[in-house]
Design a protein around this nucleic acid. Structure first.
Length: 767
RNA sequence: UGGGAGGUCGUUCAACGGUAGGACAGAGGCCUUUGAAGCCUCGAAUGAAGGUUCGAUCCCUUCCCUCCCAACCA
């Protein structure tokens, strides 16, 4: 397994090690069957199924089908196909939220019976009004305090179909004033007199995502429920439900950043628009970022999985550049595609020194030399051939390695041709034929020098080449971030009008006439191509360009990309305790205390702010200060160390009090213990309480090393680092930090850092 | 403006208090019967300010910036 795990795998690993779920790891991929999967889902699939695979667990495929209005069996099937194609298997763990409807109903009834859910009869807009806003608390619905029996009666009748859509909803009774809007009595059930693609008309009430999802996870024994960032606020509901309805160990939700790709749109809504407006040929159009589209485009599951691995998993919103995907795909294709010749835009070349009827059969390897793979096919070389129109230039730019009037170029797998004559259409002036002479192609060994460096171009005998349709694809969008559109425009205004180029008259080797849909090749110098699954027919091949080859020439000649817009760095702001700070203080007593702290020698204004932000913290500080009257020292402990630990718990539940902290500070200040030792002791106090002096004695931290002891320790630490020490002495002075780290570990907190550094400096100074 | 989550080379991910590293992209070079592939070299970052520490990308504080949340969608 990889050295550096992403934060989710880190959690899974920790849970596995601690036996939290008895060593079980169960993830799930839970799509709603209302559309096609896209590359963003692939990230999630690779994550969920990948974790299951790596930790010897299971990943369930569960269809989150709780909305009868949008879902369909066809989507279920396409999703299953796509997951399998990507190379994952749910091993029979196939589930549908709709199979849990009866259980869901039972859980809802339990919630009602416990007084934790109620039937609300407000209208949709009424509910919205009562919910409040992000800055104002909501108000309780007039129906919030219905009796249990009334709720039960209403809910049962909702199910029985006695009410029209929208008449009632079931809501969790949580907190209408919660700062987290999601917690303001979230809806659990709504009435929908609509047939469901699986349950038909059996139900007319349907559970909401926030209800169905956590329950499904818990029912299936999911351990790690991994979803995208936009569900962070929903986690509170998730936890509330699994905690009130299920026993430990409960599933936990973790969120990661969804994938955004440059030059692509990823939302189902937008993708649907592209299909409906006929901008693309369908969900599997080779330009679509759907799995079906990528498959038809010729992308490989291996390449996509490699891409998913390369982008990693994190919580930072990001937009991955297309190049990363393309590189992963190209990398995979490079190892698996035989090389063949194709001429996309043919230009006739007559080789004047070849006989009219003569044919040379050349042996041409299918794989590049460095691949180590064997295999070849015969290539016919005749008097009339075609080369790529773009491989000839009448007025070649500097550095041109291809053909030009009077110049020569190598024919792939053959010799050199020299362009003796350019034939043009008298009317249009277009070049229609080149008349060239072929020579053996050998350099003059030891002779008048080697030939000039030349390209080796693709070509095809006109009598043997087979016509093929070739489709070249470019990015769908003209801008990197189509989600970010200016006022009055939509993403459709930024679509690339030239995202596909069809070349009906391309030429390929005769061996490609009978390709099967899905066969992939590298057309030398033109890129990787796949025979189209749908349109390619025996005798009439159709190829999609999967991806171009990297092109050093084009890259060189490309216009320099415009400098990214300068990001304005925010001006730095100095913190000054001001009126705003004071207004945050809870009442005049705190304000008075704030004044007093500011006036206390050794305390900074900033510390005074922090100390008074919570009266309990201020109390703690003052109590400790009374025992060890060094304001600076106590404040540092409280502000830096105590506050950090307090993030997870209340001050009242601290396993020690102000006297212990004061004692710790005092011991440190009178140098009875070293600073590092004090920190170790603090950690021990946090873990289990106790007196600092006793802990110090127990851990052997109650004495400070002598210089000779430190020297011995430093020697030991430095011993295996000879190479690094040499580098240091050679001038790599930033290694000092590393040496200090090793040395500090060696003295285990029993030495004064200053002394360690002094001795270290002496040792390192010695040659 | 309430709550939540984020901010490391151009991009993306590492570094879990101890040498800021990889990949993609970029520049230069080697090699080459693919201007491919491969190989080598180089440039390039911790949002800001304070604080704690021998030492801070990492811990504390404040500020700035970005994203998410007020569907009977998921």
């Amino acid at each position: 397994m990889a050295e550096n795990l992403d934060f989710i795998r880190e959690i899974v690993k920790r849970d596995t090690a601690s036996g939290r779920y008895g060593g079980r790891v169960v993830t799930r991929f839970p799509p709603e069957p209302n559309g096609f999967l896209h590359i963003g889902h692939a990230k999630s699939i690779c994550l969920n199924f990948g974790i299951a695979r790596e930790f010897d667990g299971a990943c369930h495929l569960r269809f989150d089908d709780t909305n009868p209005e949008t879902e369909d069996m066809a989507f279920v099937e396409s999703i299953m196909r796509d997951v399998r194609w990507l190379g994952f298997d749910w091993n029979g763990k196939l589930f549908f939220a709709s199979d849990y409807y009866e259980q869901f109903f039972g859980f809802a009834v339990r919630l009602i019976e416990a007084g934790k859910a109620y039937v609300d009869s407000l209208t949709e807009s009424g509910i919205r009004e009562y919910r409040g806003t992000v800055t104002e608390p909501g108000r309780e619905s007039p129906h919030r305090n219905r009796t249990v029996s009334e709720n039960l009666d209403l809910f049962t009748r909702m199910r029985a179909g006695e009410f029209p859509d929208g008449a009632h909803v079931l809501r969790a009774r949580i907190d209408m004033a919660a700062a987290n809007m999601k917690l303001r009595d979230p809806l659990l059930y709504r009435i929908r007199h609509t047939s469901h693609y699986r349950t038909g008309d059996a139900w007319c009430i349907y559970p909401m995502y926030d209800f169905a999802h956590p329950l499904s996870d818990a029912i299936e024994g999911v351990t790690h429920s991994i979803c995208t960032l936009e569900f962070e606020n929903n986690r509170a509901i998730y936890d509330w439900l699994v905690e009130t309805l299920f026993d430990a160990p409960r599933p936990r939700q973790y969120e990661f950043a969804r994938l955004n790709l440059d030059y692509a749109v990823m939302s189902k809504r937008k993708l649907l628009q592209l299909v409906e407006d006929d901008f693309v040929s369908g969900w599997d159009d080779p330009r679509m970022p759907t799995i079906a589209g990528l498959r038809r485009r010729g992308y490989t599951p291996e390449g996509i999985r490699d891409f998913a691995a390369r982008i990693g998993v994190d919580k930072a919103n990001s937009r991955v550049s297309m190049e990363l995907l393309e590189d992963a795909i190209r990398d995979d294709l490079n190892g698996r595609c035989p090389r063949v010749l194709a001429v996309l835009r043919p230009l006739k070349v007559t080789i004047t020194n070849l006989p009219v009827d003569g044919i040379d059969w050349l042996d041409a390897p299918l794989w590049p030399r460095d691949s180590g793979r064997d295999g070849s096919r015969k290539l016919a070389l005749a008097r009339e051939i075609f080369i790529e129109r773009t491989d000839f230039s009448e007025q070649p730019p500097e550095g041109w390695l291809r053909l030009s009037p009077g110049g020569e170029v190598r024919l792939a797998n053959s010799g050199y041709i020299r362009c003796d004559e350019v034939v043009k259409d008298p009317l249009s002036g277009e070049v229609v034929e080149l008349r060239c002479a072929l020579d053996s192609g050998e350099d003059n060994p030891g002779g008048a020098g080697k030939r000039k460096k030349r390209a080796a171009i693709q070509w095809l005998s006109s009598a043997h080449a087979v016509r093929a349709e070739v489709r070249l694809y470019d990015r769908l969008c003209a801008v990197a971030n189509p989600e970010d559109v200016e006022e009055g425009k939509t993403f459709k205004d930024h679509l690339n009008p030239d995202s596909v180029t069809v070349i009906p008259g391309a030429l390929v080797e005769p061996g490609l006439a009978g390709v099967q849909g899905g066969d992939r090749f590298q057309f030398v110098r033109n890129g990787y191509f796949v025979a189209d699954e749908v349109d390619s027919k025996p005798g009439a091949p159709v190829f999609n360009r999967i991806i171009e080859l990297r092109d050093g020439y084009k890259a060189n000649k490309a216009a320099p990309s415009p400098a990214p817009p300068a990001v304005r760095k925010p001006a730095s702001v100095r913190t000054i305790p001001d009126e705003r700070t004071r207004s945050r203080l809870a009442g005049p007593a705190q304000a008075a205390r704030h004044d007093r702290f500011i006036a206390t020698p050794g305390l900074t204004a900033e510390q005074a702010d922090v100390l008074t932000s919570d009266p309990a913290v201020a109390d703690f500080f003052e109590a400790a200060l009374a025992i060890h009257p060094d304001a600076r020292s106590i404040a540092n402990w409280v502000v830096n160390d105590l506050l950090r630990e307090l993030k997870g718990r209340a001050l009242s539940r601290l396993p020690f009090g102000p006297p212990e902290l004061a004692e710790l500070a005092a011991m440190t200040d009178r140098q009875a213990i070293t600073n590092p030792a004090a920190r170790t002791i603090f950690a021990a106090m946090m873990a289990g309480g106790g007196k600092p002096a006793e802990i110090a004695a127990r851990l052997g931290l109650d004495r400070v090393m002598s210089d000779s002891e430190i020297e011995a320790a430093v020697d030991t630490a430095l011993a295996p680092l000879g190479e690094k020490v040499a580098e240091y002495r050679a001038g790599k002075t930033n290694l000092l930090g590393m040496f200090t780290g090793y040395a500090m570990r060696a003295v285990a907190g029993k030495a004064d850092p200053a002394a360690v550094q002094r001795i270290l400096g002496e040792k390192l100074g010695q040659a």
